Amino acid sequence: MAYDFKIRSEVNTKGKTSYYAKITGSADPEFFVAYKTKYQERFGLYNSSVSTNLVYKASDYVGEFGFWAYFIEATAKVESEGSFLCLNTYDRAFFTFGFMQFATHVPNGDFVRFFRKLLTLPNALDYFPRLRLTSGRIFYKSDAGTTSQLENDTSTVKLMEYLNPTTNEVEQQELICSARFVHWASNDEEHRRIQVEHSISLYKENMRRYSKRLNLNGYPAKVCFMVCDILHQGRGTYDRISYALDTKDHEEAFENLCTIGNNHYQSRIDGVKAHVKRLEQSGIFNKTYHADTNEFM
């Protein structure tokens, strides 16, 4: 049976609006969905809350995913403090979710592929009763039974507008979809596992592609990780990265990479460097990349 979420809002003494949701007819307590915010000329929601039991930890997933569970951990930390519930609906992506902040606006991008996987779960119709996965694409099903495709190889506009109709104001549909994602991630271990699996798949695919472009075979894990984090955030270009790697000293290459984007993103760079150092000191990151197998040894 599809969940029916009832939304409640409250304004604190500083004028900040919070939204809460509860499943109609359920004895479960209401839960926090998000705060309202304004970014430039856009209005939307954000949830950056961190709960001990709902934070990505590589050690929880290393048994299934091996070293790759640690390889994504520093990015997860700086993106969202590892929160499985991280949400924002106020920027040009219209809807972003998960500890790696998967964004809806890219055709066949990280969010679209993540959402497709979620829609294969047995409880998907409980959360999104109008959506169907047909031939690998996301469709909307109307009361009349007709279906319309929400995303394709060139556009996700209809999917963006389904999740968040506009950024002119916070709307009921936006709140309901946000509540669905937050509740699903909070209460379903398999949802969280898909976030992890998809994040690791993304970085594994990226490593294969980046290695072909930058010849990363034989480089230490921390150099490869920094390349992935730079390009995941978009704070540097291939040309700038290639220039940073143009040295026979791998430690120097790493430090060069750490200067990319430092005018605007020094705190993020400091965060990933600190996390990488801890992984190195524990012996976890003392591996090198082997392009033929796309693995670290």
Rank of each mutant, 00 (worst) to 15 (best):
T120R: 02
N47F: 02
A27S: 14
K22C: 07
R137E: 12
Y162K: 00
K77N: 08
D4R: 15
N53A: 11
K77T: 08
A124L: 01
F94D: 10
E79G: 02
D239E: 13
W68R: 01
E255S: 09
I241L: 01
S155I: 10
S186F: 10
S267P: 01
D4P: 12
S142T: 09
D153V: 12
Y140R: 08
K141S: 08
N12Q: 01
G271A: 00
T293S: 09
G98D: 03
L133D: 00
F84Y: 15
Y35L: 10
A274N: 05
G234Y: 03
R209W: 09
F65E: 00
F99N: 02
G261K: 01
S83L: 08
M207T: 11
F84I: 07
V223T: 07
G82T: 03
S178H: 12
E197D: 13
R180V: 11
S9Q: 12
Q172H: 15
K141F: 02
S186Y: 08
A27F: 09
R213M: 11
L257K: 00
P107Q: 15
V11P: 00
G63C: 04
S148Y: 13
T75Y: 08
F114E: 04
L216A: 03
T17F: 00
K273P: 05
P29K: 07
E10S: 05
V170H: 01
Y61C: 01
Y243L: 11
Y219I: 01
V78M: 04
T147A: 04
K204L: 12
L87H: 05
P107I: 15
Y56G: 03
T247P: 00
D229Y: 07
Q40W: 12
R180Y: 09
F296E: 01
L231S: 04
A2Y: 06
Q266K: 14
K141L: 05
D249W: 06
L125D: 08
F114A: 07
D28N: 12
F102K: 09
K16D: 04
R240G: 10
L87D: 10
Y39Q: 07
F181D: 04
T237G: 03
I241W: 03
Y61A: 06
F31G: 05
N53R: 11
D143E: 14
L231M: 13
Q281V: 13
V50C: 06
T134N: 09
Y90H: 14
S199K: 02
E30C: 08
D4W: 13
E255Y: 11
D110G: 11
E161G: 10
Y203Q: 09
S267N: 07
L118C: 04
K117R: 05
N286Q: 14
D60N: 02
E30R: 12
N256V: 02
E280L: 13
V276F: 14
Q172A: 15
N263C: 10
V50F: 05
Y243I: 15
V182W: 04
V223C: 07
I72N: 02
P122G: 01
F111G: 05
K16Y: 03
C228W: 12
R278A: 13
K38M: 10
